[in-house]
């Protein structure tokens, strides 16, 4: 169970997150959509303390902190309960695919190397990259790199995996394989919070779609409701624009 209450983040004078309330159940798949500059990435980054929020209460499993009072230990604990998949993969360039996946297990969770590697190979199998265990990121395609990025997040066994536009940097030819892996994780009921412009993914996979604008959650609901019968005019306006750009998934 993940809960965010009244999360606020400012950059200078700009209030980028203006009191976000969000609860995520174990095994729930939530997709966040919204216009550019709305604070979607910032929301994910605050959950992981890559940005320090200015106010709010954060509950991640058994961890419950007032973000303004979070100690260094709280921050590490929060990071261990969340895993992040980056738009640009952000793989460790000096480590192989397998090493990228097991790095956290060995360094952060202090698993013995053999145990970590066994788990790493198991994850490589699930992401379909068994034969790339010893390949360095520079020699992998964008799609393969992002699958390793997802594998690294899977290894963390976090309460929730945060995806920030995981397919936006990919050449079109690699998008499908990454979405397929995410669907596979969703089918296994991995709790996920996904920021994406892939409306097809949102419609097919999400349990709940959250529409954000101007640092607030404007509207949320199951995809059938949000896509077919949006209540707020801002949601309608946004959907009209993006669905016009992605005609394959026009409202039925």
């Amino acid at each position: 169970m993940i809960q965010v209450a009244n999360l606020v983040k400012r950059f200078g004078d700009a209030t980028v997150l203006d009191g976000i309330d969000l609860a995520i159940d174990q095994g729930e798949i939530i997709v966040v959509i919204g216009p550019s500059g709305t604070g979607k990435s910032t929301l994910l980054r605050c959950l992981n303390f890559l940005e320090r929020p200015d106010a709010g209460q954060l509950t991640l499993g058994d961890l419950d902190v007032d973000v303004t009072r979070a100690t260094r230990a709280d921050i590490l604990a929060a990071r261990r309960r969340t895993a992040f998949v980056f738009q640009n993969y952000a793989l460790f360039a000096n480590k192989t695919a397998l090493q990228n996946i097991v790095e956290g297990l060995i360094v952060v969770n202090r698993w013995p190397k053999a145990k970590a590697h066994a788990r790493g190979r198991e994850i490589l199998r699930r992401i379909g990259l068994t034969d790339k265990a010893d390949a360095y990121p520079a020699s992998l395609s964008g799609g393969q790199q992002q699958r390793v990025g997802i594998g690294r997040a899977m290894a963390a066994q976090a309460e929730v995996i945060l995806f920030d536009e995981p397919t936006s940097s990919l050449d079109p030819e690699w998008v499908e394989e990454v979405l397929a892996l995410m669907k596979q994780l969703a089918a296994e009921r991995q709790t996920m919070l996904v920021v994406t412009h892939e409306m097809g993914f949102a419609r097919d996979v999400a349990d709940r779609v959250v529409f954000m604008e101007g640092g607030r959650i404007v509207e949320q609901g199951p995809p059938s409701q949000l896509f077919n019968a949006p209540r707020d005019p801002r949601t309608r306006d946004f959907l009209r624009k993006v669905l016009a750009a992605q005609p394959a998934i026009q409202p039925s």
């Binding site: 895993a83 992040f84 980056f86 790095e103």
Partner: peptide, 26 residues
């Protein structure tokens, strides 16, 4: 690359671990 620093922090590495294992080798 700054994003690797963020990735290391995001999995719960300390600043020291980040330096020793990711930044300094590169």
């Amino acid at each position: 690359d700054r994003s690797q620093t963020e990735a290391a922090l995001s999995i719960g590495m300390t600043n020291g671990q980040l330096m020793r294992r990711i930044v300094l080798p590169q």
